[in-house]
Design a protein around this nucleic acid. Sequence first.
DNA 1: CGCGGTACAGCAAGCGCTTTCTATGCGGTA
DNA 2: TACCGCATAGAAAGCGCTTGCTGTACCGCG
Lengths: 348, 348
Amino acid sequence: MTVTLADVAARAQVSPATVSRVLNGNYPVAASTRERVLKAVDELDYVLNGPASALAAATSDLVGILVNDIADPFFGIMAGAVQSEIGGPGGRAGGERLAVVCNTGGTPERELTYLTLLQRQRAAAVVLTGGAMEDAAHQAAVAAKLRKLTEAGTRVVLCGRPPAPQTGAIALTFDNRGGGRELTEHLIGLGHRRIGYIAGPEERTTTRHRLEGHRAALAAHGIEEDPRWAVHGRYDRQSGYEATLELLRRDPTLTAVVAANDTVALGACAALRDSGLRIPEDVSVAGFDDLPFSIDAVPALTTVRLPLAEAGARAGRIAMGREEAPIGGIATVRGELMVRGSSGGPRV
Amino acid sequence: MTVTLADVAARAQVSPATVSRVLNGNYPVAASTRERVLKAVDELDYVLNGPASALAAATSDLVGILVNDIADPFFGIMAGAVQSEIGGPGGRAGGERLAVVCNTGGTPERELTYLTLLQRQRAAAVVLTGGAMEDAAHQAAVAAKLRKLTEAGTRVVLCGRPPAPQTGAIALTFDNRGGGRELTEHLIGLGHRRIGYIAGPEERTTTRHRLEGHRAALAAHGIEEDPRWAVHGRYDRQSGYEATLELLRRDPTLTAVVAANDTVALGACAALRDSGLRIPEDVSVAGFDDLPFSIDAVPALTTVRLPLAEAGARAGRIAMGREEAPIGGIATVRGELMVRGSSGGPRV
DNA sequence: CGCGGTACAGCAAGCGCTTTCTATGCGGTA
DNA sequence: TACCGCATAGAAAGCGCTTGCTGTACCGCG
């Protein structure tokens, strides 16, 4: 039925061992033999049995990439960058690796299940992207899982996620707090004092850090935050739209709105326009991430650029052992303030 | 070192066979025995060895999803939908499947390599998304690969791709031609006669079909197309920007520009604005796909909505054998014209 | 009381590959 | 010429799991 190593061996008149060695290329094989084997492989159209090989060699060429939402470019960009570095087809590395992109939907259970599934597949490495859940029980469970993975020799890299101490995981953390602070300071510098904030889901680290940065900026400038100025929502456009209307209802005198990310900011812009407000003349808007479409918003979005592709690529290289891990296993990746048309001085 | 089935068996005082059966649940096991086994599994923190199990059972729980560009929401949305249906964690199906999202970058070699890699892993199913390359040699190679896969029992589904006859693959094809035609007819109906077209890469089926639809509309209305009105580019924003400038240079009297997709349309909008032209008063713009951000463009983009999530979900169900394949193995998925602010009557 | 049937549980043979250890042949050196 | 070592190929023992087949109780029934 299906052709096996043994078939190839028979055809090439060598032992299965020799065929295996030709295919893996980590043992001396005479050139003439090698050619004979390769010819047989070609003629029989032989394809290695991955599971069998993984079992025998106790290694696998699978690399897991966990993302919260694969339809969101924020994750897509990182995942693509990781994949380009792990040496899949077209990658730079030697062996061919299969990237397994897992969509957790941001739910703890699926995150754990995928981690187990990857552990079951004996994945060579795992990259977790995006913010973590703040639920203590879940964090402990994930940490335990990560520890198991690293102990079993799987390299674990966190990309855009807070460090997971005692797990052996390498962390490339985004400086969400610093970026958030810089962004709000920019608005304050423009003269804004009444600034609304549309935060992401409460239980996410990313949400909390960005909000903390925002508040730090307010505090640093002696601005007391009105509790009405902050709303929590999801990381999507509709949430931004609704939250903005809510914000406007609570305090129509706001002169600026900071969104949890660019997608939310787009929703905010739509809500403002639909409310008859001009951007930035009446209300300034700012986002976070600098996703590709942000520059095409009208006016172009002021935001904090996160080097998603670079971070993802680095995470991929570290996962493959092709780049040294940062000292202490933790590196902070900074964002860059991008001032564009959506922010301006407040109306007088 | 690592705990195996045998360890669990020993601890539960049963044979390995019994443990396996408890875990797979496809053979009667007394409730008391089952509990003892599960307790042992829990206590030992046992995780099944995927490769070993796949080898022994000659099946795998991997499902491959090929996309051209994972950072592009067009593919991300489809991939996410497929994944939600294949019964991974959170999915509806029973067994837990691992979705393997492979980023081909739109290159033939990587597409083939990934297909081989999936074949090697004995994937349970493979879903190919997005347009195909029109290179004859490559198409033949892919067709051969697909045939091998289906022959080996792997279900193959094409989502948003032309059918691959004689391969056993099920095709869910987007009606790009019909959508393109409808879109251009809308513009013609508004009074436009001088319409520029920014096509995608030449060798893609998607590109060709959309362009054919456009031309069919022109022909149907007796409009002779000026060769200067069409430019080819990539499916990205920058390409749209540059192509639009080129179009404007070639014929400044154009009253409308149709883009290969929404992303390209966004670039076109930017180029028009930077050229001092108003949308749609001076030039109308239209896109294709109706990606989430299209409604947030200013003015909102007139486009053809493709039911990406629905198609992806259906592809996933078919791949899992949970939905019957369409008769003849081919189904056409139609787009829906979305008329929004970016298109209006031509300037007089 | 004996027998067929049912409901479990175990044995053991692989699944297709990798890899250690062992064999063989040959050239070079003393 | 005899011996040693190197280069290369093969034999065979698993890797950890699944599953067909073979027990072995125990039940109910005639």
